[in-house]
Structures are given as C-alpha cells and as structure tokens.
Design a binder for these strands. Structure first.
Lengths: 147, 147
DNA sequence: TTTCACGTAACATCTATTGTTACATGAAAC
DNA sequence: GTTTCATGTAACAATAGATGTTACGTGAAA
C-alpha cells in the first residue's frame, strides 16, 4: 500500500517556513520537499481552510504561518488534512450479514481503536514549537560536529 | 489508500473452518469470503508455510486448521502474512539529508512506534479460541432473538 | 502592462491490493 | 488406468488511492 505522506509533507514545509521571516513560494517549498508546486498548493490549501496558514499572490507572495507555533499540534494538522485513514489494515465489509465476519470485525476494530486513541493522543501532545526545538537541537549538534 | 484486508480474510476463513469437521475447499471458502479461490489459496498458503493450516489435494481435499485454536493468536497470523505495514501514514524519505525532515521523521516515528507496540500487544492477546467464543455468544444471541 | 504567484481543473503516472485466467500436479474414486 | 476433484503457481487484468504534471485562470505588485 502506498502510504499517505501528507502529514510529513506539511510538517516539513511548515518547519522550513518557520525558519524564514518572508513568505515562501510554492516553488521554493516544492524544492525543499522534492515535489511539485501544485502538490504544495493543493495540500497547503487544506491548512489555509483551517486558518493555520495564509497565502498571498503576486510579487513577494507565498505562504506564511498564521498562528503561534506552540498552538499548532500535529493532531490539528492531521484533522486539517481531512483525518485520513491511519491504518493500512482493515476489513472488507463494514456491516456484514455473516455472524462470523461480524465477530472478526469486532475483534479487529477493538484492537485498532485502542491504537488509534494512542496515536491521536500523541499527535495532540506534539506542537510545531516542539518540532522547532528538536530541530534547533539537531542543528547545533551538527554545527558542533563540524567545528 | 487501499487497506490490506488479508488478516480479516484469514480470520474469517479460519473461523468457518473451525465450524466444520471436514476440510473446506478453496471454492467453498471463496464463497464465504466473497472472493476468488485463487486468492484463498494464495493467502492460506502463507499460513501453511507457518504450519498453521494444512492443505490436501484430490477428493475430499481442502483446508484444515493444524493447531489448537487457543494457541493461534492474531499476532501469529499477522506475522504469517509477512507482517504487512500497519500504518497508512508515513514519510517519504527514510534517511533524508535535510535536518528539518529528520526532525519531522523522528517525531512521527516516535508516535507511530508507540501505537504499533499497542496494536501488536493486542493482537498477541487475542486467539482464535477467543474469536470462537465471541462468535458462539453472537450465535446464541441471534437464536434467542429469533425465538 | 508585464511579471509573479496562487487557485483549480483535468489528466497522467505509480504503486499496491485484489481479481482472473490458464495450466500443471497430485490424490482419490471409478 | 482414466476420470474427477482439488491444490500450486505463474502471468496478467482490474481497481483504487496517492502523487505528479500540464494548462489555464485570477489577482497583486512592480
């Protein structure tokens, strides 16, 4: 299965934007992310709908973050992306007639629901500010290594 | 993303097999599962490699469970299927040069690793015998409803 | 009015799962 | 022994979702 990497993508984009004090164009972001500017617009557009980022056209236009980094959580971003399926494993029929299949579905649903709660909780606990802190740590570690 | 439903499928098949005291053919199972007999053989073949089921050719041939229901866990079945990806969400590059991307990957990996541990633990705790018990409960509940 | 950048539709590509066809192999029944 | 039944397996088709691409429209600043 092909994994949805949009959450990873927007995080990567937002962190690069956080490092700049000017708007970043879709083209510039696309280069950072090794993707296509249209993909950037399409995906960042979902964040704009939730008021998380702004976009401006014309000269000196581009994308900017519209809120404090500490107030944006990974969970919010996940929701802004439309809460895509978290699991690559599932069952075929949602409401089967077969009692055997109902039993199987119930067991799997229980196990996955528990894991889903865990992951949503974790996503809720991590903000962009946390990522920025982690990045700063890695950044100075690399500088120290170079010197 | 298209979800892998093979775990659901083999569970469904095994429970039907558990209800029979004769081998079940791939054709019969395929009808239960609303799929194709070749898909059944392909998938059940993975379980056979782990010794969880047996297959016999010719007259009165078909598939049988090769172990006690209480000793087969969902986790074992997941492993027999080749431990397919659990998550539909991931990141693009496994070992990126970009420090920003490394930071993003680390955060997501942490969150998902925790959830993966939860789900594997749950799968380990559920056996086919548990499913059979649950099925029996549902079965008698339906009978009671009918009467 | 030209340039820049986003907005969006439409289409192409890629990839993984699932479904299908075809034929070989082996075992039991006759 | 030959027919029938069932699995084993390769090869290919269909499907679906994610991602990439092209093309053109719109608005803002130089």
């Amino acid at each position: 299965m092909k994994r949805d990497s949009r959450l990873s993508m927007v995080l990567h984009a937002l962190m690069h934007m956080a490092e700049h004090d000017h708007p970043m164009t879709s083209d510039a972001l696309a280069k950072c992310l090794s993707t296509n500017p249209v993909v950037v617009r399409r995906t960042m557009g979902l964040l704009r709908e939730k008021g998380l980022v702004r976009s401006e056209r014309g000269h000196a236009g581009g994308w900017t973050i519209a809120a404090d980094l500490s107030t944006i959580t990974l969970r919010e971003l996940h929701e802004a992306l439309g809460e895509p399926e978290i699991f690559a494993i599932g069952h075929r029929h949602e409401a089967p007639d077969c009692l055997v299949e109902q039993s199987v579905n119930a067991a799997l649903d229980g196990a996955f629901a528990e894991a889903e709660a865990v992951i949503l909780k974790r996503l809720d606990e991590i903000s962009l500010a946390d990522l920025a802190t982690d990045f700063a740590r890695r950044h100075s570690a690399r500088r120290a290594k170079k010197d």
